[in-house]
Design a protein around this nucleic acid. Structure first.
Lengths: 190, 190
DNA sequence: TCTGACTAGTCAGTTTCTTGAGTATGATGC
DNA sequence: GCATCATACTCAAGAAACTGACTAGTCAGA
């Protein structure tokens, strides 16, 4: 019972089809939730059945028809109630960190390569999100937007996303450098 | 097939019982993986059956007996192979971020309170992990330890943990302040 | 002496997530 | 003219994770 709230929160801004929602989950929502399209379609159906979302068919030409969903008043109330409950602590699951934990008990060459790849990916994401922030605040200076903007929720989560990606990048590069230096050091003494 | 590698990586340093492993998963390992004790017991049994871990019974007085597990050579090889595979991107799931995403469409008072609680929790974790880092490097200066320490894997993941918690704290406090200011602003104009 | 916390687990049931494939159409690129 | 990508979804099977309860002994404190 948790994806449901992420979906509701994502749909607060606009009507979306399942397909569009899946895109959103790859962009802004990815900063705090991860889900595959199949899950989203299933969740949308369930939420509609429970009356928290309402869907409407949109006929299209030149491409398949779609169903757009919007949050109902009951859905908004559900979110409201959710906001009052105690939040579970966030959790990370990261393969790469598992590999780093094992580093110096296993070969590090592959891990170094992956750290550097990940750093590059994070740099890209941070850049993209920074641009997204610019778009969201539409020219206004940030503090002005945060004080008076009408809809700042997505902006705030996006801020966190940027910080997270930048920090990921810094860490990856630093750890890669440390492991590389140790590798060279061992080579010299061998 | 993912928790298995986190368990193997955690057991590289020492023998642990299921119970002790569960503790470790609440401390250092929590920086990159989350699992409940029941999962860990089940995973340990499976890994032993597959020969990646070997367990031995330890009889105790004054408390229940326990089984200690250590990584076998096959287990180390499994980790080695895992390190060569491409890592999935990490993902976060955070209730609190869902609530922030919804902020300004729902009441913010409860969200502000939770942000401030979370900031406090993160401060505590960061402090604890910083202390853990000090212990791990045992008096040596950090760069010295990173160059020549025998076992730096856990230290490196812990570094990430500290950075993550500190950033979580900063973000929570900043967002709480932003939401609070908007609340007061609305009150004035009402 | 009773309560609760700590050690050390086990079991069953359910939900959630992932994997992988399949459907159908139109547009775009080589 | 053929392949691939984008839109828009669906279905089923299996793996993984979560919830909640339960056993059982020890120790500390009220």
């Amino acid at each position: 019972m948790a994806l449901r709230h992420a979906v509701l929160a994502a749909l607060l801004d606009d009507e979306y089809s399942g397909y569009q929602l899946a895109k959103a989950f790859d962009i802004g929502v990815a900063n705090f939730w991860h889900a595959l399209p199949q899950q989203l379609y299933a969740e949308l159906a369930k939420l509609e059945k429970e009356g928290l979302l309402s869907g409407r068919q949109v006929l299209q030409e030149g491409r398949p028809n779609k169903r757009l969903f919007r949050v109902t008043e009951a859905g908004r109330a559900e979110l409201e109630a959710f906001a009052e409950t105690v939040a579970k602590p966030s959790f990370i699951r990261d393969d790469l960190m598992v590999k780093v934990q094992a580093a110096d008990r296993i070969g590090t060459a592959a891990v170094i390569a992956q750290l550097e790849e990940r750093a590059e990916v994070s740099r890209g994401k941070a850049e993209f999100l920074t641009e997204l922030l610019r778009t969201l605040r539409g020219g206004a200076p940030e503090d002005e937007y945060l004080r008076h903007g009408e809809r700042i929720g997505p902006y705030l989560t996006c801020l966190r996303g940027v910080a997270f990606e930048q920090e990921t990048r810094d860490w990856c590069l630093r750890i890669a450098a440390v492991l590389r230096a140790r590798q060279e050091n061992r080579a010299e003494h061998a």
